[in-house]
């Protein structure tokens, strides 16, 4: 029986090792809190395009169907996290700004809306015609579509899109 002792002490030490590792990891984590799991909302942050007018709609991913009923699943699958919309009076148009998790998602949605052709215009890539300006800046995709009932002024539309693009650029700059 006595001969069994030394062996059992060795095995005890071996078995105790994982516990020591786990204790060390837990204690280390407790002393250095992570930022990853922050369960508390920040103080109110200004939304994108804060300098612009108040949006008519500002929807999280879960409520996209309230504006783009039917397209919400596709948008979410591309990483759309938020949608803001404005009804503009001058130019008479609707502006929708969609925030994505990454530029690739935004680019895919632009390609779906506009097809492969690109025109000179605001953002990293754009597709403009007489009635609309669609463009992507980084992970933000914006659609500026003239109201069908009013005569569209392509120059005015493009100028507004450039203004929106500058504000998006400012927002993205602040984020980085």
């Amino acid at each position: 029986m006595a001969k069994a002792r030394p062996r059992s002490v060795v095995s005890a030490l071996v078995v105790a090792l994982p516990l020591l590792v786990v204790v060390a990891v837990v204690v280390r984590g407790a002393l250095r809190p992570s930022d990853g799991s922050r369960a508390q909302a920040e103080a109110p942050v200004a939304g994108p395009l804060a300098g612009y007018a108040a949006p008519q709609a500002d929807l999280p991913a879960e409520r996209l169907h309230e504006r783009v009923d039917g397209a919400e699943e596709y948008l979410r699958s591309q990483g759309c996290s938020r949608l803001l919309a404005w009804d503009l009076a001058d130019p008479a148009a609707t502006l929708e700004v969609l925030l994505f998790e990454d530029p690739e998602g935004a680019a895919r949605v632009l390609s779906r809306d506009a097809g492969p052709s690109r025109t000179a215009g605001p953002g990293d890539e754009a597709s403009a015609d007489a009635q609309s300006v669609l463009f992507r800046r980084g992970k933000v995709y914006a659609r500026l579509v003239a109201d069908p009932d009013s005569p569209a002024d392509p120059e005015r539309l493009l100028a507004e899109a450039r203004k929106v693009d500058r504000m998006i650029l400012d927002d993205l700059g602040r984020e980085m």
Partner: peptide, 14 residues
């Protein structure tokens, strides 16, 4: 934090 959206003015959150 911004997804719940209740602390943002004008927000339409969860």
């Amino acid at each position: 934090p911004e997804e719940k959206g209740w602390t943002r003015p004008e927000a339409e959150g969860i």
